[in-house]
Nucleic acid binder design. Structure first.
Lengths: 214, 214, 214, 214
DNA sequence: TATGAATGAGCGTTCATTCAT
DNA sequence: GATGAATGAACGCTCATTCAT
C-alpha cells in the first residue's frame, strides 16, 4: 500500500491528485454541512466529486478521514476574522469591522459555519481539542485586548468572553439558521442586501452597549 | 393494525401506554437533540427507554413518527417565551424579561433548543411549514409591537425582526454551543451562575442599543 | 388453555363462536386466494373479519391453522362437480353437464379455484395427501366410468384422465387467469354471459372429439 | 451508485457480470416460479446463486428489479409458440403444431409457465400492461387468422379467443399443476412419454371439434 | 491511478406468536 | 371471550470498507 492519503496534512503530489483532493473536499464540505456526518454517504460525495467511490477511497481511507480533513481545511477561515482584530486599532471601529467580517463570512461561506455548528451541536467529538486549545488561546488573547480597552476607558465595561459569544451567535445565525430567517422574513433566499441589513442591525445593537460612558 | 400508536395526537389511554410513550419521547428527545434524525437509531432510543425495539414500534409506527411527536411536543415550550412578550408592558423591561426567559430555557431545556437547531441546520425538512406559518405569524405580531414602541419614542429605532434574531441567537447560543462555551471558558459544565452572567451580559449589551435617545 | 380451536374439524360451540369462525374463514379465503399464504398477514384477515388480531388468534392458534381450515372447508365444493358425474346418465350429456357445473363454479367461487391453484402451483405442501388419496380415488372412479362408456361405444375412445385434466384446465382457467382473460378480451370484468360463452365454446370444442364414431 | 445493475436492459459488460447475472436470474426464476414474489426472499435467491446477499444486491438494486428482469427474460419464450402460428399453413395442422409446441414448452420450461401463472393468479401486478398490450395484440392478430380460416370453410366455426384460452389452459396445465397430475396419475414425475400422451390426448380432443363439417 | 467485485454489519420495519389480564 | 402488551426472528435494503486487478 502506497496510498498518498494523509488528510490532516494533505501532501499534494501530482496535479491530478491535488485537483481530486480539492474536488473531494469541496463536495464533502457541501454535503456534510447540509446533512451532517451520518446523513452523508461516501457515494454521494463521490458522485458530487465526479469520481468513483473506489477512487475516492484511494485518496481518503475512510469517511471519517474525509470529515476530519474538511474540518481541518475549514478551520483557518473560521478563525481568521477574530484573529484579525487589531489591538492597536480604534476599539469600536475594530469591533464593528469584526462584525462585518463575520457577517460577510456567513454570506460567502455558510457551509463552513454550518459544518462547525453541526459538529459542536453534537458535542464536538472531533474538534473538542481544537476548541479547548487553539481556539481558547485565541479568544483569551483577544479578550485581554478588549479588557484593556475597557480599562483604558475606550470601551464600556463588558465581559469580553460573552461579548465574543454574542458576536459569534448573532453573525453566524444568518448562516446556520438561514431557512428560519428566510421563512420568518418571508423570502426565498437572502440576498446581499439582507446581509448588509443584518450587519447594520447587529452593529447598531451592540455598539451602543459598548460605547464608553462619561 | 391493532397498535395504539398515534403520536401526534397522543390519546393516552391506559397507564402503561402513557408511561411508555413518555419514556420513548424523553429518550428520543435526548438522542435526536444530540445526534439529529439520521444520527439516531431506533435501537438507541429503545435501549435508552429500556424497552425492546419491537415494543417501541408498537407505540410509534416509525422513526419518523417518533421524531415528529418529539418536535410537536417541544414546539410549545419553544414558542412560549416570545409569546409572553406583553404589548402593554414597559418596552425595555419587557425585552429584558424576554432575554431572561430565553436564557432560562437554554439552561433548563437545552435539548429542546438543540433539537430545533439541528432540524433547522439541516434545512428544517419536517418543520419548514411551522416556521413559515405559526412562527412567522407570531414573530410578525411581536415585531409590530416593537415597531410601535419605537414609533412612540419608548424604544430606539431598530429593525424588530433582526432584534428578535439577535435575541434568539445570543440566548440559544448557550444551549446549542454549550461545549464550545465550556471549552473557551475552561469549564467542565455551565452552572446556574454562568447562565446568570450570560443573561446579564446579553441584556446589558442589547439594552443600551435599545434605550430611547433624547 | 381451553381454546376451542381445532380447525380441521371446527367444533362450533356457541353462536358467537360459529359466527366468528365463519367470518374468519371467509376473510381468509378471500385474502389467501388473492395474495397467497405469504402475501397475506394475520392483521389483514383480522381487519377484514372485523375483529382484533388477538381475538382471531383465540380461534385459530396460528396462520397455518387458518390456512388449513380454509382449504378443508373449500375442498368439498371443489370436488362436488366431478362427484356428481352420473354413471347411469347419457355420456355426452353428463360430460356437458360437468363442464357447465365447473364453469359455473369458476364464476361463483373463483376464490376457491384460485386458492387450490396457488396451493398446487407451490407444490401442494398442505394438500399433497388429499391429491394422492381422496382425489385420486375419485378421479380413478370416474375414469373407469368414462372408460366403460368408450368400451360400450357410447363415447369415442379417449384417455379418461387426460379428458378430466382438460376439463379442469379449460373451466378453471376462467377463474384462475381471470385478469388475463379480461385483458385479452379487453374487458373490465367478466359477466354472466361471458361465462356462458366460455361454457359453450368449451363444450363444443370437447364434445365433438368425444362423439362416438360409426 | 457505482453498481452496474440495470437488469431490464442487461448490458453484460464483463464476463463476471454476465455470469453472475445469469446465475442470479436462474436462481430467481426457480424460486419465484415456485413460491411467488412474496414467498421468495433475497436470501434464498442469493444462497441458490451461491453468492452473498450483498453481492447479489450489487447486481440488482432490489428484489423487485430481479423479479421484473426474470419476467422480462421469460416473456419471449412464453409468447413464441403462438407467434409462430403460420397464417399460410394448413389450419388443423397449424393448430396441432401449436399444441405440440406448448406442451413441449411445459415440459422443458415449466418454471416459466408457473412464473406467469403465479403472477397472473395474484392479479398480474407487474405485467398487467403486457397482457393488455403486446399479448392482446398478438392474440387478436392470431384470432383474426383463425376467424378467416373458419370463414373459408377450412375450420369449423369457433370463437377463436376461447379456442386459444382452451389451448393455453390444457397445455400449461401439465406445467402449472404438475404435482396434481402426478398425484392423480400415481407417478413420481412426468416423463417425456407422459407429455407425448398429453399432447396426443389434447390434440385429439380439440381437433375433432375444429374439423370443418360438410 | 483507477475501477470492479465482494462483504459484513447494521438499519428501519414487518409479522407471527406469546403472555398477562 | 376478548384485548393490550411485548417479543424475536426475519426481511429488504444501505453503506462503509476491503480485495483484486
Amino acid at each position: 500500500m502506497t496510498a498518498p492519503a494523509n488528510a490532516l496534512a494533505p501532501v499534494k503530489r501530482t496535479r491530478i491528485q491535488a485537483a481530486n483532493q480539492r474536488r473531494i473536499l469541496a463536495a464533502a464540505l457541501d454535503l456534510f454541512s447540509r446533512f451532517g456526518f451520518r446523513g452523508t454517504t461516501i457515494d454521494q460525495i463521490a458522485e458530487r466529486a465526479a469520481m468513483s467511490k473506489s477512487n475516492l477511497l484511494y485518496y481518503f481511507r475512510s469517511k471519517d478521514e474525509i470529515y476530519r480533513a474538511v474540518l481541518q481545511q475549514t478551520l483557518d477561515d473560521w478563525l481568521q476574522p477574530l484573529a484579525a482584530l487589531d489591538p492597536d486599532g480604534e476599539p469600536l471601529a475594530e469591533i464593528a469591522a469584526y462584525i462585518r467580517r463575520k457577517v460577510e463570512l456567513s454570506r460567502t461561506a455558510p457551509e463552513a459555519s454550518r459544518l462547525f455548528a453541526t459538529e459542536i451541536l453534537q458535542g464536538a467529538p472531533e474538534i473538542k481539542a481544537v476548541l479547548a486549545g487553539p481556539l481558547k488561546r485565541l479568544v483569551d488573547d483577544k479578550a485581554a485586548i478588549i479588557r484593556r480597552w475597557s480599562a483604558e476607558g475606550r470601551l464600556a465595561p463588558v465581559d469580553p468572553h460573552h461579548l465574543i459569544f454574542a458576536i459569534w451567535a448573532t453573525t453566524q445565525h444568518y448562516a446556520d439558521f438561514a431557512v428560519q430567517v428566510q421563512a420568518v422574513l418571508g423570502k426565498r433566499r437572502n440576498g446581499r442586501q439582507d446581509y448588509a441589513a443584518a450587519a447594520d442591525a447587529i452593529t447598531r445593537l451592540l455598539i451602543e452597549g459598548l460605547r464608553p460612558r462619561p
